[in-house]
Simulated scan of single mutants.
Amino acid sequence: MTWPESLRVAQVRVARPTDRLDEVVRFYVEGLGLRELYRFENHAGYDGVMLGLPGTDYHLEFTTHIDGSPGTAPSAENLLVLYFETDTQMFDAAQRLGEFGVEPVPAENPYWAANGGLAFPDPDGWIVMLMPRPVF
């Protein structure tokens, strides 16, 4: 599937601030299994790290500013949802997070648990929802 002609996007990056940059990067890299793709320092007072999967055009970017960058989640419904191809792949990621010391938490919306999802908070309280299969 390709992007529509009216929206020819080359990359997608979701960015958010944090005052816990090192902890957040460890969670997503060592705990979840993403890769660090790029890092920058002191760009107009910002440091940042891009995470994702090599060769893909979808990334997460976490930044911190010298004057502070509060990054706590505004609600329990602010989610990063990762859909796996199989239950086994999802449980492998959940086990890694458990070995990293992160325990699942109840999801705010019952839809996720009813469909096999597992919710894990990152160091800022943002929820990473692991789902055992794609929706479509």
Rank of each mutant, 00 (worst) to 15 (best):
M1S: 14
T2W: 05
W3R: 11
W3V: 06
E5D: 14
S6C: 07
S6T: 12
L7K: 12
V9N: 12
V12R: 02
R13V: 15
V14G: 14
R16F: 15
R16T: 15
P17C: 00
P17S: 06
D19Q: 06
R20L: 14
E23V: 03
E23M: 07
Y28N: 04
Y28L: 08
E30T: 08
G33Q: 01
G33N: 02
Y38E: 07
E41S: 15
E41C: 09
E41M: 01
E41K: 10
N42G: 15
N42Q: 12
H43L: 10
G45V: 07
Y46G: 06
Y46R: 00
D47C: 12
D47M: 03
G48H: 02
G48F: 07
M50H: 13
L51V: 11
G55W: 04
D57Y: 04
Y58H: 12
F62A: 09
F62N: 05
T63L: 13
H65Y: 11
I66M: 10
G68C: 10
G68Y: 07
P70V: 00
T72P: 02
A73R: 04
A73I: 04
A76N: 10
E77H: 10
L79D: 09
L79G: 11
V81N: 07
Y83N: 08
F84G: 05
T86F: 08
T88I: 04
M90R: 15
F91G: 00
A93W: 03
L97G: 14
E99R: 13
E103A: 14
E103P: 01
P104M: 00
P106G: 02
N109K: 08
N109G: 03
A113I: 10
A119G: 11
A119N: 10
P121A: 01
D122S: 08
P123L: 07
W126P: 01
V128P: 06
M129Y: 05
M129R: 03
M131V: 10
P132L: 00
R133N: 10
P134I: 01
F136K: 06
